[in-house]
Design a protein around this nucleic acid. Structure first.
Length: 273
DNA sequence: AGTACGCCCTGGCCGC
DNA sequence: TGCGGCCAGGGCGTAC
């Protein structure tokens, strides 16, 4: 599913192609994909005939800055995709393309999402941060160990902490499992139980694994594809996620899966203490 | 404050 | 061949 590395890959793919384009038409084929107080007609009104000035990523969201006070925000959810469909080589539209952007140059972009957990909304640029309500960006250079140590608090389990977007942005089930394996920390440990060394390892693993995810252009365990419609490679490098019963690549012990809330935690019971 | 759980959703997969 | 039930889970709301 799209987490930080997948959203970052999509953003990087789209940037040279989409910035500078003017939106001619926005077709909203599934109105409930817009889960905000604003109606889809308002979204159309605020995006049509606007030029895209910039694109950025925040957590798992892709944000298009328009030549107005507004920004168009797409949160990818579990199965959201943003696909380029150039006029010269158009992509076939299907029933899961819930929002279709047509640009004045004839190119199009699809927001596709077959499980429809994603969402699309338009808001004032200066309201984006408040509406997304996310913790710090783990790959931002300003995210130092001191900053991490300052916010890494509480009695919650360490995997739950990592997956909470309000604590730290962009980490979901895949990368939390891989980060904790890399750091050698058991997912059910509580945050407050980690000593300084473990916190340092965790901090390093967050940066390392997310950077790996970006390098391999994301993880295609499920539906994820980049803006070209191509799968990423990160899932072939994953050590524990969805490898239940397979040998741990470090010690050979069988990888375990245990439920945490409604989610699965995958881990090596020997390497992760 | 933390945690569990149900809900939204779809299609693949398993057992009968 | 078909069908019911389960699985995957991001984010949110609710109950405890």
């Amino acid at each position: 599913m799209p987490e930080l590395p997948e959203a970052e890959t999509i953003k990087r793919d789209l940037e040279p192609w989409v910035v500078g384009k003017t939106i001619k038409k926005v077709d909203i084929n599934l109105p409930r994909i817009i889960r905000s107080s604003k109606s889809s007609s308002d979204v159309k009104k605020r995006t049509e005939s606007r030029r895209i000035e910039d694109i950025r990523r925040r957590g798992k969201a892709v944000i298009f800055g328009l030549d107005s006070d507004d920004a168009a925000v797409i949160r990818l959810g579990m199965t959201g995709q943003l696909l380029m469909s150039p006029k010269s080589n158009p992509r076939e539209q299907d029933k899961y393309d819930h929002v279709v952007f047509t640009f004045t140059d004839g190119d199009r972009m699809f927001f596709k999402d077959w499980r429809t957990f994603g969402l699309f909304f338009v808001t004032k640029k200066d309201k984006v941060e408040a509406e997304l309500d996310l913790g710090p960006e783990p790959l931002d250079p300003s995210f130092s160990f001191d900053e991490f140590a300052r916010i890494f608090k509480g009695t919650t389990k360490v995997k739950s902490w990592l997956m909470n977007q309000k604590r730290i942005a962009g980490i979901g089930n895949i990368y939390s499992d891989e980060i904790l394996f890399d750091a050698g920390i058991h997912p059910f440990r509580t945050v407050e139980s980690l000593n300084k060394k473990e916190k340092e390892r965790l901090y390093q693993s967050i940066k390392k694994i997310l950077n790996e995810g970006v390098k391999y252009r994301g993880s295609s365990n499920d539906a994820y594809v980049d803006a070209y419609g191509e799968k990423g490679e990160m899932h072939t490098h994953q050590k524990v996620y969805r490898r239940t019963g397979e040998p741990c690549p470090v010690c050979g012990t069988e990888v375990e899966r245990k439920k945490m809330g409604g989610r699965s935690a995958h881990f090596c019971p020997k390497c992760q203490k």
